[in-house]
Design a protein around this nucleic acid. Structure first.
Lengths: 151, 151
DNA sequence: GTTTATGCAAACAGTTTGCATGTAC
DNA sequence: GTACATGCAAACTGTTTGCATAAAC
């Protein structure tokens, strides 16, 4: 959405940072990805455009600092980055512990429950992340084939 | 709880791994911590007992592989480890983005909602993590003092 | 006694830093 | 033109690996 990209540019300028081709590249890559990307992937994808590794690190650090992206856990303990609202709609992840497939969940409706849970602590809530881990249908089938008696 | 520790020892033996003083040490450290610990902290805490760094890495890798601990995001994009059920009760985290304080949330009751959300995908759910981010009362106060007109 | 776990040292990978050059504003 | 962003190379940190020794079973 061009709207999001304009918002992105405004956000940078508002805070005194410049809109550069490299920053746009990283932004667009994240916007086009249906799941969070580890730095290594961003570096690979981006390097074909001639952008330096160091620059990618600096851009993701900046984006994190000013609230354009945030880190989330993907796969087994590794970190990926994804756009956060208002740059991308609020959503959660369903992760397969077998094959690391990630499914986006868009019907959250958890706000009320989150409010209830947190109410006693006096926190001002900014956002929440829900990650659901399980076995996808394929991996369930594989598990049955390999170890019918285990567990 | 001694019960949990026995279960821990059983779990190791069942899978063909040995119960060693080092593994017990790491287990007890995690059990005694109210919040997830980054590897660096485990290494520091543990090194006073003479255990080698490499061993800590190997133990945490093992514990993760056989489902005794799991990694969670703490602070700004760094990873911490904590015991998972049945070695520790199910809980979630309320994290302050200002000071990184972590509060344990024990009244989850999200299972039903999670089931509803995931139902269409055919996944077998193993566990879920909810992380709520916000500003603790102290950091809210600080923010007001420092920048009354911003945002 | 056998097999697994640990310690040590070296290798490795990912990340950060300083500085010179290029570019957005 | 000025201040900020980038590229490059080197430094640094955290993590992994191979092998000899020690300990659990």
């Amino acid at each position: 959405m061009a709207n999001h990209e304009e918002l992105f540019q405004e956000t940078l300028r508002e805070r005194g940072f410049r809109v550069t081709p490299d920053r746009l590249h990283v932004y667009r890559l994240l916007e086009s990805s249906p799941f969070p990307l580890p730095i290594s992937t961003v570096v690979e994808e981006i390097q074909s455009t001639g952008i330096n590794q160091t620059t990618v690190y600096r851009i993701l650090e900046l984006f994190t600092a000013i609230g354009i992206v945030h880190p989330v856990l993907i796969g087994h303990g590794s970190v990926g980055y994804e756009l956060i609202p208002p740059f991308r709609h609020h959503h959660h992840h369903l992760v397969c512990v077998g094959c690391n497939q990630v499914v986006d969940l868009n019907n959250c409706r958890l706000e009320q429950r989150v409010d209830e849970i947190v109410e006693p602590y006096g926190y001002k809530i900014l956002y929440h992340d829900l990650e659901i881990h399980g076995l996808c249908p394929d991996c369930q089938a594989k598990e049955k084939d390999n170890a019918p008696n285990e567990n």
